[in-house]
């Protein structure tokens, strides 16, 4: 079996410097969005999905585990945050924490179950678990079924930041995204991340070297699920609703698509992919179901001709890791 990513460039000080430069450029560009007249809602939405895709990428790109149910973490955190904000009237920071805690709990349970099988079975199990959760949310009273939780108050974060102002909300979401991104970057380059990559490349060898690979994969799953939950909790403030769409398998498929387009196992790929796919949906919204057809075609084209993704191709061309 060939590995998912064929360019394993060793981590050198120069590679680290390149990545920090790209990160700084990205942060500056994103921070200047409110001054450019770009519709902030679009960028905020893309940032939430970018964080979700980065969390997903932690699992597939560095652990080799394709989860086809990542929307369940986003959706669960969204529902729980929304409920905490609206019904319990908690302040935003606690609402986010409730969402993260819910995603953490869910990833403990689903990770424990799905890690028991590998490869293709793992994907099918995560998909089935997310469908199970979809039906539970469809029937559970607190999610309000097809309507979802609507009209969620945005409130004042830490008592001072008025999240109903678009610019304030934008910077809060941006800071959340950048923090999540840096955390994932830190995880990837930690000793834990290195072991994870070795499991992806050759699991039997990692086992023979004495690593308990199941525990590493489980921890990666929990980290990824919890971060996906963070993205879901942030998205509640942007969309001001939590609905069944966020837990449906089509959403999980979109996350996979974003990461694939940007580049599996690249650091910046999921961000590029998320912006590309969200922009595409925005511009093609009038074409109805043809959007699905286009998304399917992108899947097919990416898998057949473009497996490194946008960022992966660029990195390969310059022989860098990005």
């Amino acid at each position: 079996m060939t590995a998912l990513t064929d360019d394993t460039v060793p981590m050198t000080p120069r590679a680290m410097r390149d990545e920090m430069i790209v990160f700084a450029v990205m942060a500056l560009l994103l921070a200047s969005v409110p001054f450019t007249g770009v519709y902030p809602f679009f960028v905020m939405q893309a940032l939430c999905f970018a964080l979700l895709a980065c969390a997903f990428n932690l699992l597939i790109g560095y652990g080799g585990l394709l989860s086809f149910g990542h929307a369940m973490f986003m959706g669960t955190a969204g529902y729980c945050s929304a409920h905490a904000l609206k019904v319990w009237a908690l302040p935003p920071e606690l609402g986010i924490l409730v969402g993260i805690a819910a995603a953490f709990g869910l990833s403990l349970i689903t990770g424990f179950i799905s890690i028991r099988r590998q490869g293709i079975y793992f994907s099918m199990i995560t998909l089935a678990l997310s469908q199970l959760l979809y039906f539970i949310y469809l029937q559970a009273p607190f999610t309000h079924g097809e309507d979802g939780i609507q009209g969620i108050p945005q409130g004042h974060m830490f008592g001072v930041l008025d999240l109903s102002k678009p610019t304030v909300l934008y910077y809060v979401v941006l800071v959340g995204f950048l923090a999540g991104f840096l955390l994932i970057y830190r995880i990837i380059n930690s000793p834990f991340g290195e072991v994870l990559k070795s499991i992806r490349e050759n699991e039997p060898r990692a086992i023979s070297l004495g690593y308990r690979t199941d525990q590493y994969k489980f921890l990666a799953f929990v980290l990824s699920g919890t971060l996906a939950g963070f993205a879901g909790a942030l998205k509640v403030f942007v969309a001001q609703n939590a609905s069944l769409t966020d837990v449906h398998w089509t959403m999980s498929g979109e996350v996979v698509l974003m990461t694939l387009v940007g580049g599996l196992g690249t650091i910046f790929g999921p961000v590029v992919g998320a912006f590309a796919i969200i922009a595409m949906q925005q511009y093609l919204a009038g074409f109805g179901q043809w959007v699905t057809v286009i998304q399917g075609s992108i899947f097919v084209i990416c898998v057949l001709t473009f497996r490194r993704g946008v960022v992966g191709e660029v990195a390969h061309y310059f022989r860098r890791s990005l």
């Binding site: 079996m1 043809w290 399917g296 097919v300 990416c302």
Partner: peptide
Amino acid sequence: GLDHLYGLLLTFGIALIVQGVFQN
């Protein structure tokens, strides 16, 4: 010769295309 996961992704894309066309 590629990882199994690519087969899953490719056929998922095909499923989206076929279902999308019929839905249209």
